[in-house]
Design a protein around this nucleic acid. Structure first.
Lengths: 197, 197
DNA sequence: TTTAATTCCTACTGAATTAATAGGGTTTAG
DNA sequence: CTAAACCCTATTAATTCAGTAGGAATTAAA
């Protein structure tokens, strides 16, 4: 049930792009993204081609170019990214919503194993399609701020443009709690505090 | 987030062994198991070596030998089997309970991606460690009986031994509903009817 | 107009994993 | 003694994974 390195790198880098957006930095170069997470540059380049082709990021070519999110982080679910890079979430083809393939068992609709795996796929999708980049960015930012760590991708940005108001970072709209999971399930859900305060 | 063919074959075959047990058939040969699910025999042989080594099945060698479950189906969780054949359930090493490996990110305890993946791993484990072979066997049997399909591994068994009482199939003890999932979650949970009747 | 920095594109590659296949050795019932 | 089974080890073809490599095209700025 693995997430590939490619998938992990994609997510880590997109999270960083999300942070960059939050800190008003317009463009981030692949080299910078790679450095901040210690990832192989050329490999990450490839990944970004895929992300761009899928419309998740957009690029500016040439000197001082780079990448940015192509839409608000709130509109990019983790599930989208994982599916794009690693394929369907379902453990077996016959329970995939996005890429169904028939399996070998005779009566599929009542196969015990299939129904179990359907539950698994729904559990996975229930999380990965529920949470967006914005959620993970928010958590990461909280942590960084609590620890007093300077936010990545903000230093140069702050030095460069003092023209606009960098203090009024538009905080993401409150998450529209689509309730598919039980309240006690999920670290993230608890962190978001609808329960813990 | 794939389950390997090996894992799938292992589960399918164990389910069949569970059915065999329910029908009072003591031993089933790899060849018979392979035939009933149309799996490559030699490959399945290998898989059963692993299952045996792990203590999930036991074997009788020689003519009219075969395999049986080494313990009641109720005591074999799906998670055990998947971990044995496919390794940890966790999408990334740093959230694995059974085989933790440190990941590259600096502050692991508050990494946003990690917490998300922890939720995913818990969701998967919450299902696969909750349900046992007996559950899947029960579902499969229900289906077969409702469709009037003759149960596999019962024909010869019935002809061979009329000595003991084959009618009093010991029905598995009622599942001890360990409630970690919400009541509305899960096809299997609904099928088991604690809600639908 | 040149230069440096960047994305873009395509090909290649070594290692690991997957999904088997192959071939026999050992045990046991009849 | 033999047939039917499990047991054991090696091999392999195909695929995927995780990158590397090398340059072409584009762009901002000196």
């Amino acid at each position: 049930m693995k997430l590939s390195k490619k998938g992990e790198y994609a997510l880590r880098s997109l999270i960083n792009l999300g942070i960059a957006a939050e800190v008003e930095r317009e463009l981030v170069q692949v080299a910078a993204l790679a450095k901040s997470e210690r990832l192989p540059v050329k490999f990450l380049e490839q990944i970004f081609q895929a992300l761009k082709e899928a419309g998740l990021v957009e690029s500016q070519r040439g000197k001082f170019g780079g990448y940015r999110l192509a839409k608000p982080a709130r509109e990019i679910t983790i599930g989208q990214v994982v599916r794009l890079i690693d394929g369907p979430l379902a453990p077996i083809g016959c329970v995939s919503q996005s890429a169904y393939t028939r399996c070998t068992c005779p009566d599929e609709t009542h196969c015990g194993l299939r129904m179990l795996m359907l539950d698994v796929r729904n559990a996975i999708a229930g999380i990965l399609d529920r949470y967006t980049l914005a959620d993970v960015v928010e958590i990461t930012l909280r942590k960084l701020r609590r620890n007093g760590v300077p936010l990545p991708f903000s230093a140069e940005a702050a030095a460069k443009r003092r023209t606009r108001n960098p203090s009024v970072a538009r905080r993401g709209a409150r998450r529209p709690a689509r309730n598919r999971l039980h309240e006690t399930e999920g670290v993230l859900h608890q962190i978001f505090g609808e329960y813990s305060i």
